[in-house]
Amino acid sequence: MRPTLHPLPKLALCLIWIGASVLVFDLRFQLLTWALAALLLWRGARVPLWKLLALSVPFALFGFGFLITSLLFNAESGFAVQMAREQGAVQPDVSPGLVLFFRTLACGMVSALFALTTDPGQLVRALMTHLRLPAPFGFALMQAMHLVPDLGRELQTLRMARAIQQGRPLRRLPRPTELMALTIPLLAFAIRRAGRAAIAMEAKGLRPGHPRSQMHSLPLRTTDLILFGLGLAVLAAVLLLLRQG
């Protein structure tokens, strides 16, 4: 999978691979999926290894929950593990918790592969062009992407204003009580900003249900379909080899 693959086949392929990871209860498959996604990010998308490791941390923490539950509370957590075990033969015969742990890591790395190699703007445009996502929804998604950094900046300003009022330096990380107190002002900021953006978009001619052209609609090329097919073929081959081995 290369970074220039059309976002939609890439999305479909990633979802199919994540689906396979959920259904196939095999440690080797999870490890292979994780390694393949990490390799594509490292060598193909030039993502530094430290960043890949950092990205894995939240998924690893989540996966540790399964691992610890499985190891320490095997009897109590039997139902979920048994359900997973019954989906397929556990190969090799390892702790189901370990499989669940690496499943989390594998799904996380495939998600990261999609997120880090996809231009969000192109994805939204592709959804509007090929899957008929209504333009107001598409541009609302783009606004949401603009809003995230703006909310971050507003949060910092509000935190600084609070620090001034309380006569203390700015803490590096806010305390939970501080975050709670800032929720309403941030929400008010987000609502006001969204309202202004909606008015501006209307003033620039955006109308629900009205046809609109696109300056750069991303076409689905033959190479995109070939790469999509190749990805599916690799998945099928891996599953076949695991079943035979």
């Binding site: 541009f139 978009m201 620039k204 001619g205 955006l206 109308r207 009205h210 046809p211 609109r212 052209s213 696109q214 300056m215 750069h216 609609s217």
Partner: peptide, 12 residues
């Protein structure tokens, strides 16, 4: 820059 022009369905 293209947004308002796309809304008018002008040729790409």
């Amino acid at each position: 820059l293209a947004f308002a022009l796309e809304n008018r369905s002008l040729p790409p």
